[in-house]
Design a binder for these strands. Structure first.
Lengths: 229, 229
DNA sequence: ACCCGAATACTCCATTTCGAGTAATCCAAT
DNA sequence: ATTGGATTACTCGAAATGGAGTATTCGGGT
């Protein structure tokens, strides 16, 4: 079981709203959206209502009243409990202080990239660089707009963070593409030769059955299932 | 519905294994672990078996044979299909070329950090910096070990990527902590004053009901639900 | 006075995910 | 010969997730 009674970060956002004042779920939804938090915390209806219910079941929030206007669906107003305030502060502290292993899609892609030919990987990484530059520029534009509106920096730190991460990713990707292009990246030559053989019709399985025979001495490392430190 | 028939990145890893040669699920599991891929792709039993079944249902892999030794559970050996090879290549290309919005826990934390007092946030960020430095050093040590073993760089790009991202996060966090400490970060003073009031027993709700009255002119922005660009 | 599109406020449920639990087998040391 | 710990190979169910679908009301134009 996870350390937290309710583990979806959306629950933290819910607690943060109710820490300001009591609200009904849909109001939590619009509050978070109007503050742009849905850029940083995944927010959809299914999760929101499930999370609210779960928070209540665990005593972190409590229903204050339910009212119904006309024949609209009833709205249940929730308030945070003392337990909820403590969970909120403790959880937020943990998020800020403790790095956790996150699985990004680029990391997954990089870890399997040997499955595509090097030249294509270079092309794909270049494509990614362009997309990243676009995203960076649109973040910068949004930031300037926020400044014009007099929005204090503290309300946009998360987008500054995203900017920093995207910039670092761009630098990494540009460098990697260059190092593959120039075959400076260790292993590139074996990699290239392997895909040339595949293009000529040799099967993957065949090559891996006798890597040194097909690819030369440098491919010795492929002969064993290379275990990792 | 998601673009991919099976959307868990683990499915890509499964396809990548079966692209080498037919295997049974548990062998896929050990192969991936021995190559350190479970550092980059979330891998647990429940998902593995579910994903394999789903891949088969969608015709991306096919069962080759099932055999049973003694009274052990039977092992089903799977092979990749032509459809599977295409899906593998297309999906991998997409992962490398197309950035996707990822929700990290630090980003969530930063977006809600105003809920804790500035001095505590600084302390928490310092704590994170220490943890990040530790992680960076252990990645570096593992990298050197890999080099000693003659492991070509191409098999560890994903950990170089992780290193680059962690380093960027560290730089961001160190800078942010410093900017809060010095109140250079826009909005820090209002933020600090607000938590002083709370410490004195004023309720959050009360302050937000009349921010300018409690916190001064700079808090005008809190008076409206600040919408975002 | 009426119509239409946007906004409000959810509900529903098929998948997916997680990881603890199970059960057999192998190996090595007592 | 036996015990016990690691390894092999999964099973299962509770919980989370995503997002399409539904029903009502409001507001602005004609």
């Amino acid at each position: 079981m996870s350390r937290r009674r309710v583990s979806n970060p959306l629950a933290l956002a819910v607690l943060s709203c109710l820490n300001e004042r009591p609200m009904h779920p849909y109001e939590i939804n619009t509050t978070l959206r109007s503050r742009g938090k849905e850029q940083s915390i995944k927010l959809n209806y299914g999760s929101l209502y499930a999370v609210v219910e779960s928070l209540q079941k665990h005593g972190l929030i409590t229903t204050l009243e339910t009212n119904r206007e006309g024949r609209r669906p009833e709205r249940t107003i929730y308030a945070i409990t003392q337990d909820g305030v403590e969970e909120f502060e403790d959880w937020l502290a943990e998020l800020l202080s403790t790095p956790t292993r996150e699985f990004t899609s680029l990391e997954a892609g990089l870890s399997l990239m040997a499955g595509l030919p090097p030249d294509e990987v270079v092309r794909l990484l270049d494509e990614r660089s362009d997309a990243l530059r676009l995203e960076l520029r649109s973040l910068e534009a949004a930031g300037e707009f926020g400044e014009e509106m007099g929005l204090p920096e503290i309300f946009v730190v998360e987008s500054h963070y995203r900017h920093a991460m995207l910039a670092a990713e761009l630098a990494f990707v540009v460098d990697l593409a260059q190092r593959i292009r120039s075959s400076e990246l260790g292993g590139t030559k074996v990699w290239r030769r392997m895909h040339e053989l595949i293009a000529q019709g040799t099967s993957f399985e065949e090559i891996l059955a006798d890597p040194v025979g097909h690819l030369g001495e440098e491919a010795r490392i492929l002969a064993s299932q290379q275990p990792r430190p």
